[in-house]
């Protein structure tokens, strides 16, 4: 499978995760979101950028509860709830946000 953007094709797995993390860029993230019928706003980007930083530092995508706690700590308590994150990413915060962030699918999480 693949995702097309500006005449270029980027390889994805059967669930739409990028095969090569190096392919990722902002426009590609927005294109993946559009395929799911979503439009990314600054709140989405906050989470996506956090996930990319986290992966860069620890080489894993965090579990949802780790993500929730860290977002709350960094961006304010009102954002550190699974309700907030599920509203942003209804298909599951870790799963959907990781996809847009160009990270591999997190193991054993929603």
């Amino acid at each position: 499978m693949s995702i097309e953007l500006d005449g270029k094709s980027y390889e994805t797995d059967e669930e739409g995760y990028l095969v090569n993390m190096g392919d990722w860029n902002d426009a590609l993230a927005s294109a993946m979101a559009r395929e799911d019928g979503a439009e990314l706003d600054s709140n989405h980007w906050e989470v996506i950028n956090f996930l990319r930083d986290y992966y860069e530092e620890y080489q894993i995508a965090p579990a949802v509860r780790v993500l929730t706690k860290a977002i709350g700590k960094r961006m304010g308590k009102e954002k550190g709830t699974s309700k907030y994150l599920y509203e942003l990413f209804p298909y599951g915060p870790a799963k959907q946000a990781c996809k847009y962030a160009g990270l591999p699918k997190p193991t054993g999480c929603v």
Partner: peptide, 10 residues
């Protein structure tokens, strides 16, 4: 190896 540093988050 950087992942061991994430253990405290868990």
């Amino acid at each position: 190896s950087p992942t061991y540093r994430a253990l405290s988050d868990y």
